[in-house]
Design a protein around this nucleic acid. Structure first.
Length: 458
RNA sequence: GGAGGGGUGGCUGAGCGGACGAAAGCACUGGUCUUGAAAACCAGCGAAGGGCGACCUUCCCAGGGUUCGAAUCCCUGCCCCUCCGCCA
């Protein structure tokens, strides 16, 4: 069994099968509900949705959509009419048979219906598949509060906590500080570039950081710790939005199994509620999970090649919330605060940034990044990304709760955020806690996790 | 890996070619009764899509087939359970 990046050839699979590989109980449960954006709203407010998607740098082909919709409507009407005819006719045959009458003429009269229906149904399926592909490929439009702009230069700083470390010496970077505890040559030998081997105190620091984060979120923020699979199937990735568009960013399992290494715990954890109707009283659900994350980083060759900032495999503690739709904006603030708490306890200078529309991920309606100060780079770098997806993922996953007012199921809202990216926190601790003599001290909050020691023996 | 048994509505679970979107129970909602609650009794109560609507269509794991007609019969796949084997 090996992992490889799967090429674009696999993208045709859904098309070859005629429809996306979905069905009730597996992934996107029903093709007609597989939208991203509420299909009814898409039809009625196509203009304003196109406008909002344009802020994300995406051009919605309104003409094509409307043409497809018109065909869909006509064919669906046709198919349903024929089916109804068949149902009525078949029922009559049954009654005649029960009454002991001759059914032969009735059966003969219905003969052509099957062919007509088959042909119409085939055309309808084709249009529906095309519409489905069109719609699942559309990203979530940005929320009105998202700043305009097409790239990270337009992101807006919301707040800073503590001023950047003011060293009276030339700060060293994490690779230099880690010394022989970080063995990139060994990693390259056994796995290739963009992997790392941590030894001794450094490995323990990473483990300590992880435990510290999970404990804080469980004990102080009320999250439930969960352990989840690191391999997931295609439906799961469709649910959170990594597929069908971003297959190249994932590591796929080579062989008979159609599985992928998770790019983030968001994927398996959010999908825990796929295909379910939660009770109102169960909300909100708050999960924290620590997993390794695997990213092929296609398209990022040559970026951040020094050290362990950008790796094919890294550790992350992830926060996921499933909330009532009225609560998701408050929840985004809370979740972001939960992630910030880790940085504050570790006394790492950081800032919070609202991503502009063009910098948002595919599924996010709004994202707040936390960026930690890295002294050697003399700049803030992303260490957490907290997003509200509204009902975008919930629609794909068919994740609902029972609305007590109407008694009917409504979509939940989903959110997630890193709390935090452990590998990058490791870098931040090394660089911010160096003392000029090449010694790295241990943040107070972490000492209990490192046998009480006050400095790292790197 | 071998041998069996299964996948039906929020849950448990019957049905096994036509009158079945599907019995029954639980849960839930409304009502009667009660000072109140419980119990009892009566009634309601799956989901998705389409239509301005009356209403129509689809869904009994998934995909394909047989049939005028499939939850029900046949094929394939996936998943679950039990026993045996192996194993951290």
């Amino acid at each position: 069994m090996g992992a490889r990046t799967r090429g674009s050839s696999c993208r045709v699979c859904p098309v070859e099968r005629g429809v996306l590989p979905v069905g009730r109980g597996v992934g996107i449960p029903d093709r007609r509900g597989s939208g991203v954006i509420d299909p009814r709203r898409l039809r009625q407010e196509i203009g304003s949705i196109a406008e909002r998607l344009r802020r994300k740098g995406v051009e919605l082909d309104v003409t094509r959509f409307e043409a497809l919709e018109a065909r869909r409507k006509r064919l669906q009407d046709e198919v349903e009419r024929l089916r109804n005819q068949r149902r009525v006719a078949s029922k009559r045959i049954g009654e005649a048979k029960a009454a002991g009458d001759d059914i032969a003429p009735l059966v003969a009269a219905v003969g052509h219906l099957g062919d007509d229906l088959g042909e119409a149904a085939k055309q309808f399926e084709a249009v529906r598949a095309e519409l489905d592909e069109f719609v699942t490929g559309l990203p979530n439009p940005p929320h009105d509060s998202v700043p305009p702009g097409l790239d990270e230069a337009s992101n807006v700083e919301l707040r800073r906590w503590q001023e950047p470390s003011d060293f009276n010496f030339e700060p060293r970077d994490h690779v230099s500080l880690a010394s022989t505890s970080l063995d990139l040559e060994a990693a390259a030998k056994i796995a290739g570039s963009r992997f790392s081997v941590l030894r001794g105190a450094l490995a323990r620091l990473q483990r300590g950081l992880t435990q510290f984060m999970i404990d804080t979120h469980v004990q102080e923020h009320g999250y439930e710790e969960v352990y989840v699979p690191y391999l997931v199937d295609r439906h799961t990735l469709l649910g959170t939005g990594q597929l069908p568009k971003f297959e190249d960013d994932l590591f796929a399992i080579d062989g008979e199994r159609d599985q992928f290494l998770i790019p983030t715990a968001e994927v398996p954890v959010t999908n825990l509620i796929r295909d379910s109707i939660l009770e109102y009283a169960e909300l909100p659900l708050r999960f924290v999970a620590h997993t390794p994350c695997f990213r092929s980083e296609a398209g990022n060759y040559g970026k951040d090649t020094h050290g362990i900032f950008r790796q094919h495999q890294f550790e992350k503690v992830e926060l996921v919330q499933i909330v009532h739709p009225d609560r998701s904006w408050d929840a985004l603030e809370e979740l972001t605060t939960h992630a910030e708490t880790i940085l504050r306890k570790l006394e790492l200078p950081y800032r919070a940034v609202a991503l502009c529309a063009g910098d948002l991920g595919f599924a996010a309606a709004k994202t707040i990044d936390l960026e930690v100060w890295l002294p050697a780079e003399r700049r803030y770098r992303e260490i957490s990304s907290c997003s509200n997806f509204l009902d975008f993922q919930a629609r794909r996953m068919l994740a609902r709760y029972r609305n007590p007012e109407t008694g009917r199921p409504d979509y939940v809202h989903t959110l997630n955020g890193s709390g935090l990216a452990v590998g990058r926190t490791l870098i931040a601790v090394l660089e911010n806690y160096q003392d000029g003599n090449g010694v790295v001290h241990v943040p107070d909050a972490l000492r209990g996790y490192l046998g009480g020691s006050s400095r790292l023996d790197l």
